[in-house]
Nucleic acid binder design. Sequence first.
RNA 1: CGGGGUGUAGCGUAGCCCGGUAUCGCGCCACAUUUGGGAUGUGGAGGUCGUAGGUUCGAAUCCUGCCACCCCGACCA
Length: 490
Amino acid sequence: MSKGITSRAEDYSQWYNELVIKADLAENSAVRGCMVIKPYGYAIWERMQAILDKRFKETGHSNAYFPLFIPKSFFSKEAAHVEGFATECAVVTHYRLKNDGTGKIVVDEDAKLEEELIVRPTSETIIWNTYRGWIESYRDLPILVNQWANVVRWEMRTRLFLRTAEFLWQEGHTAHATSEEAIAETERMLDVYAEFAENILAVPVVRGRKTENERFAGALDTYCIEALMQDGKALQAGTSHFLGQNFAKAFDVKFTSKEGKLEHVWATSWGVSTRLMGALIMAHSDDQGLVLPPKLAPIQVVIVPIFKTDEEKAQIDAFVNRLTDELKVKDISVKYDDRDTQRPGFKFAEWELKGVPVRVAVGARDMQNGTVELARRDTQTKETVAQEGLAGNIEQLLHAIQENIYQKALDFRTSHFTEVNSYDEFKEVLEGKGGFISCHWDGTTETEKRVKEETKATIRCIPLDAKEEEGVCIFTGKPSSRRVLFAKAY
RNA sequence: CGGGGUGUAGCGUAGCCCGGUAUCGCGCCACAUUUGGGAUGUGGAGGUCGUAGGUUCGAAUCCUGCCACCCCGACCA
């Protein structure tokens, strides 16, 4: 297995080729820009799904499922939306193949669809077309629905996990009677995402709002969480949109209010995707491979036996069975790797590559001494500890690891967060250490675009916690009342 | 879609300039010795050299077309 995986910026592609593929996370399939998520990688996604889904249910949402195919005409109903997605749609035009007589299979031109179908790049249109039939009265509101699905965006350039042509995600689509309620929902779901990113993924995020330029196509306001990767580039890890009445107007979704007036419904949508796996990898991994925070790890503890004889193995088995039972009572997931086809050293390296937080190695020598070797993935340290009280010890260690991984990422972000007051300083930091750059901006799309052209940095967000502060735009010198966050982004 | 590059065994590659039927490493299989940090030895299996044509007695190698992939740009969760 290849070594030399590095955490330096210019080698992130190396991570994907060497770490992710070799680590059984995923590999490119023959299909353009798509990914195969291998079982271990998918187990990580399933953990994310399970935890997020629970949060959604706790906040009153239910799951539903809408069609993969969306009639083309739906897209033309919301002007900004169609403009945003038109250039990256997979389009279904025919429904049948035929043998052309020479044995070659070709598209049957006689089977042309009356109206083309778009493979969903996002589901606002088909969902709002459906909601029209569900909503008549204020008594039908709110509708709080989430969908776990795949979507397709025909990106010009793809990147494993970060921008694949097909990706898995969840998309929440809610309908409300008032603007205030919809905005509250938008903000509440952003908080759910931020809490998940920080407490589960151990990735600190900045909560903020997008500028007009970076806003979701069809939204009045886009909220986001922005994470910082180890190479100093920012990654949008989740978004929550206040859609106003745009989709209700486009799809004619009205309700009768308490006052008896006919009004358009207010909407939100919010989503996170398999991009979170990319965030996880790039935020925490090191030269030895993946580093998974315990709360997310599909396997939290791996136990490796070291033995020569069957008697030794039997003795170790008995101990491991007791330990496993104790850990399971504490809801800790355990893998006993007693394969006799690999040697211990190989197993150590393999589980480190897969990011398992804690490893217990136990051999004949330990059985004599009543000890085990306890190793933690995050610090790469190991110590010999007593078998007595081991389960409790491991439980505490898992907490400590979760905390340490977060703290490390937070320290990194803190040291890569720079306030600047001039364009020269801006460029210097950007080309130097990178990271988030907090500075004044005149609020115009034009300035934003010019800065992007000149430096490739974009406004990641206007932080929600930004305080009012008088200043001047670093680019134009025009007045500004608060700082925004710039960064180079994925 | 514009600019650059690469296609040789499951993976990574040498050979290409200067034509003579493919090199090495990893991995895989068997046996033996091993097992507390990615084992070692011996033997073995595996390749229409991306593809279609051309030049030639002979093409991985030279020429032409096509295809695929990678990197850089525009786009983006």
